[in-house]
Design a protein around this nucleic acid. Structure first.
Lengths: 225, 225
DNA sequence: TGTTGTGAAATTGTTCACAGCC
DNA sequence: GGCTGTGAACAATTTCACAACA
């Protein structure tokens, strides 16, 4: 991730990766606080809600500036605004779902995005059986229409939920169409050019990590029936 | 993201967390190599497929022993076996889906688990409209039946896909029923007792992380000429 | 030759602890 | 008195680089 940033001037604040992945946690916590009508929050409280520790909260927030008040805490509204700004969420972002199998249709139906400023506006598939069907209000277009749909709908993010064998191909089409953010659900490592960001969500991997930890805890006990 | 790996006692061989989260990548790569009939693989090749670098592969594997051959590489079959053993995947693990909304039904329909030794064998919901329906071959039971279903089906893993407000409650029920591994899809931080492992999958958070990176890359607005 | 396995160095991330301010 | 912001100490992780060896 880190470019050749030999510190000539400490101007461009580089946010640590570890911090970036925690920002959504704070964002989520602040949304909840805001809804509850809470006006100020201490790093300790915020940490409790976000499931981290207070020192981390303060360090993380400090990378963006110092908007807390000593002896008081942070103003929830202000911090929420700040968070939105730095996450680039002032405006909603449009997403396209590529591959409308089980997972793809779930993504189309899933409401969890829209609350937080992401909107699935298009979907494509190669299967003629699926093209033309409407899932959760979105009509499935043909894969060939991807570029047009991306352009017409100002799509910023591609959700790849094809079988693994097709994932690299559709990724390249997404990139060619100008999409620079990809959330990949296929169990494959995607190759992308510089400047394109990929995040991977692999459910089987998550389950394997859980299995590993369980195996560690219980040294192979065979329960008698 | 797995900040909740609380360890109780010191084990002789402690595997770094960072390594653990990469094991599924190697596992996946080895399955592919095995299917392709490849017999040996170098750390360099494995790294290529898994999307990491060779030094990391070697270091990671070395925590489990040294089963490579200098000048040659690793035996795919043997390494795959080793991987399965350490991930505790000799036997399949049963999962229960709690909450059968959009995401929950997708989890039930999703085939991606079964290839890798995880099997969804039960599902529950509180909504009377859903209880009794059959999704992808699994009948949805009532939430009250959770403990029984866990017992009867030897369930090892709980998949929490309820609305956030219900997630903590159902987690406690899962834990009470003896489930010690939880994959949480609800956008909430779950509190669990020592010995229970939680991993979180929050799609909105992933999208926010992507948005952040995109915002960084394109420096906002170009000054007017 | 080519590749592993691994100490040691470099980098990144976390926690401490306290000065500074309300 | 309470809480932030942060440099400095500490811990984890990654990378380097090379001896060992089939």
């Amino acid at each position: 991730m880190a470019e050749d940033t030999t510190h000539s001037g400490a101007r461009p604040r580089e946010i640590p990766d570890a911090t970036v992945v925690r920002l959504p946690l704070y964002h989520r916590a602040l949304i909840a606080l805001n809804r509850a009508g809470t006006e100020t929050v201490s790093s300790e409280q915020l940490a409790g809600i976000a499931g981290v520790n207070a020192a981390k909260v303060r360090k993380d927030l400090s990378y963006f500036g110092s908007f807390g008040t000593r002896g008081v805490g942070y103003d929830v509204d202000q911090l929420l605004d700040e968070m939105r700004t730095h996450l680039g969420l002032q405006h909603a972002r449009n997403c396209v779902v590529v591959g409308t199998g089980n997972l793809g249709s779930a993504l189309l139906s899933f409401a969890g995005f829209s609350d937080r400023g992401f909107c699935v506006v298009a979907a494509v598939d190669v299967d003629p059986e699926r093209v033309g069907t409407v899932i959760a209000g979105t009509e499935v277009g043909h894969q060939d229409e991807l570029a047009r749909l991306v352009r017409d709908n100002d799509v910023a993010i591609g959700l790849v939920s094809t079988p693994p064998a097709a994932a690299q191909q559709v990724t390249e089409e997404l990139v060619a169409a100008g999409v620079r953010c990809i959330l990949n659900f296929a169990p494959t490592v995607l190759e992308v050019p510089e400047g394109v960001v990929v995040r991977n969500v692999d459910l089987a991997s998550e389950l394997e990590i859980l299995a590993f930890h369980q195996g560690r805890r219980e040294p192979a006990v065979v329960p008698a029936p």
